Computed example of a mutant assay.
Amino acid sequence: MNTTITSKHFELTDSIKDYIYKLSDSLEKYSLDIISNRVVISYQDKKGKEKKKRIFEIDLTINVAKSNTIVISQKDKDLYAACDLAFSRMHKILRRYHDKINNKHATPSEEIISADILRDEALSLKEDEIVPMDLDLHKPLDIDEALERLKSSSQQFFVFNDKDLKMRVIYKRIDGKYGLY
């Protein structure tokens, strides 16, 4: 991983550089193909009502192969605290991306294969059968009839044609009442 550290408005010491290199090396534990890492540290004096405030801003940019560039900005009074916060946020993002790629919550392949075998066996035993049904969707319904059908079923909504042959939808609302479109 190529790490570049730059500073604006102040000079970097070796201890700060070593600290940032140590933090950026810790990002490699996620086994992602990190191409480059750029850290820009800027320093500002902000004048307030009572006294001057020193603020350090860390801009952390990481390029990961086959992914978007990740950019994090962090401000703090203490330079080391700003570095820690920025890198902890980056760890969180990279951990989520690593988990997404590796899909830790997927079902094991043996379960998928056994489920496919059981489904194929069930389909081979079943014969194709056509069951005739009487469709009454084309018949116009009264709103009261549609409401009774919805109440008697476990569905959330019911689509029907009313007496004026307009398509209507009656649905169950969260508050227990019924709505009509």
Rank of each mutant, 00 (worst) to 15 (best):
F56H: 03
I72N: 11
F87T: 07
I112V: 14
T107F: 02
E11S: 10
E129Y: 13
D59E: 15
E145Q: 13
R95G: 01
K75E: 14
K29A: 02
T3P: 09
Y43H: 08
K8V: 04
K75R: 14
I170Y: 12
R38G: 02
S153K: 03
A115F: 09
D120N: 13
K75M: 03
L135H: 13
T107C: 00
K47W: 07
L12V: 09
M90R: 07
P140Y: 08
L85W: 12
A115M: 12
I34D: 05
L150Y: 15
V159R: 06
K177A: 06
A146Q: 08
D18W: 03
D128H: 06
E148Q: 12
L147R: 10
S109F: 08
R173A: 05
S153G: 05
S154M: 12
E129G: 01
S26T: 05
D33F: 04
M1N: 08
L60A: 04
I16A: 09
N63F: 04
I20V: 15
E121M: 08
K104Y: 14
I16M: 12
L79R: 05
I35Y: 04
K22G: 05
K75L: 04
L32R: 09
E50N: 14
M167A: 12
I143Q: 10
V40K: 14
S153F: 01
F56N: 15
S42A: 07
S124E: 14
L12S: 08
K92I: 00
T107V: 13
F158Q: 03
S15R: 09
T69G: 02
T6V: 07
K139P: 00
P132D: 10
S73V: 01
D142R: 11
K46D: 13
S7C: 03
D59M: 06
